[in-house]
Amino acid sequence: MGIQGKLPVLVLFLPPALLLFTLFVILPMGEAAWYSFYDWNGYGLPEKFVGFRNFELLWRTSAFTTALGNNFLIILVSIVIQLPLALWLATMVSNRIPGAVVFRLIFFMPYVLADVAAGLIWRFVYDGDYGLFAAIASMFNVASPYVLADRHLAIYAVLAVIVWKYFGFHMMLFIAGLQNIDKSYYEAAEIDGASRWQRFRSITLPLLAPTIRLSVFFSVVGSLQLFDMIMPLTGGGPSNSTQTMVTFLYTYGITRMKVGFGSAIGVVLFIICVTLAFGYRRIFMRND
């Protein structure tokens, strides 16, 4: 079937998708790029052209650097802690042992929860007066910690919630990947006397590599989108220490009615996303 045969299909099926994509993806991006060169509060039309001032301001705002740093910290923790944890649990619950399904369900549950709800629940857990942390502290007769009010601790508290919330999702990815590995490899290795660790290293890990690369990809994209869990949990505070790119955009662009500045943040975020996503796919996911 040449282009001739495909043409009617193209004419019929492409326009709706193309129209939606243009209207809701391409156009807003273009608009944001346009606004980013103006000092505009969102009312009327942008008229005050300021060139690259919004971008210059961005580099000078310390909260932006913090937000950027936090995003990379989230990616790092996802890869170093969340991924191995998810993989380890996946290897355990993918076996046909009694209770595995129940555990799978329990581990997956946090992911099902809405981000905002998770944020609110953990805000209560961390509460130093009435929360779970306060109760535990009083049980051991020590001073109650106020983790979300501490500039240095708050981001780690947020990271813990992120790992808790998303490890189940990555675990599910790994379970699916593990189930695709032919059991006969393991049987052969066992007959040859390979240890558990050897089997994991030489069979599981190489054959699971595409899934791992996909999981890392989701972590990167997820980190750059993180917003709705942070807002109820810390709102980016204290002192912007838990700001991510998107919460930074919301706080500095929307609530301050600096839509031009917000758009500049959006443009930078977009460039980072595109570079990371395409770069990652080109380098690591070429053959997947």
Binding site: S144, Y146, L148, A149, R151, A154, T234, G237, P238, S239
Partner: peptide, 15 residues
């Protein structure tokens, strides 16, 4: 000067 006296409750930065 007020801040130095730590006048607020613990954890006030998050409330």
């Amino acid at each position: 000067a007020l801040g130095k006296l730590e006048p607020f409750q613990q954890g006030y930065l998050g409330t």
